[in-house]
């Protein structure tokens, strides 16, 4: 479902051109569990951003569900992200003034879902990450593990096919990190394509398919 062909991505940094992605060709099938590893500056975040449609490749072709997304406009990409992709970030990225429930609700608000449907799904989502009793807490009243669980609930609320996680345990202690990984792997077992970026070797090794990227090239 994800099909990258000869993807290049250049960045202009001052006078220098940085070749962040160098001829990447990659296919990821529906339901796969992939880890992307590499030293910092290797281009793994850029790869994730390209897959996530947050960044456009300088050249190459990207087919998502057989649709050439390199030709899409910004607003079309926004809709594809909304419907097909879920994000989990290292720094959680919850909106501080909104409660856990409201944060989870946000993608559905952007998608224009009716209020009843939103309420129903939020209750379900909170239950699935065992945070029913934290629905009305704001991010500053929650622990790191809880924050990441809220973020996962938010990522999954639109029932996307792909879940992209950028260092999801990078900011957590090992116990809550393990809980988060378990939660993500559970989702993968339910059929969600899971792509995790990490530089934690033991975490990367859990994935059946391991991708290693160095200097913008797949190894």
């Amino acid at each position: 479902m994800i099909e990258l062909t000869h993807i290049h991505r250049y960045f202009q940094v001052g006078e220098q051109t940085v070749h962040a992605l160098d001829n990447i060709s990659l296919q990821i099938k529906k339901g796969e569990y992939v880890s992307v590893m590499g030293p910092s500056g290797s281009g793994k975040s850029t790869l994730l951003n390209v897959i996530a449609l947050l960044d456009k490749p300088s050249s190459g072709r990207y087919l998502l569900n057989n649709r050439d997304v390199t030709q899409c406009s910004d607003d079309e990409l926004a809709k594809i992200r909304r419907e097909n992709l879920g994000f989990v970030f290292q720094f959680f990225h919850l909106i501080p003034r909104l409660t856990a429930a409201e944060n989870i609700e946000m993608p559905m608000i952007l998608a224009g879902l009716p209020v009843n449907e939103r309420k129903r799904r939020v209750t379900q989502a909170l239950a699935s990450v065992s945070l029913q009793d934290r629905a009305n807490h704001r991010p500053n009243q929650l622990s790191g593990g809880q924050l990441q669980r809220v973020a996962i609930a938010r990522a999954m609320i639109m029932q996307p096919e792909v879940l992209l996680a950028d260092e999801p345990t990078g900011n957590l202690d090992s116990k809550s990190g393990a809980e988060i990984i378990e939660l993500l792997e559970n989702l993968n077992q339910q059929g969600v394509t899971l792509i995790i970026i990490t530089h934690d070797q033991s975490l990367g090794d859990r994935a059946p398919r391991k991708i290693r990227i160095v200097d913008g090239q797949l190894k």
């Binding site: 996530a52 910004d74 607003d75 926004a78 809709k79 992200r81 994000f87 909106i95």
Partner: peptide, 16 residues
Amino acid sequence: TAEIGLLKALGATKGQ
């Protein structure tokens, strides 16, 4: 800024 970036990632269009 971060919030706006997040909203974009979650699928907010320019119009929104």
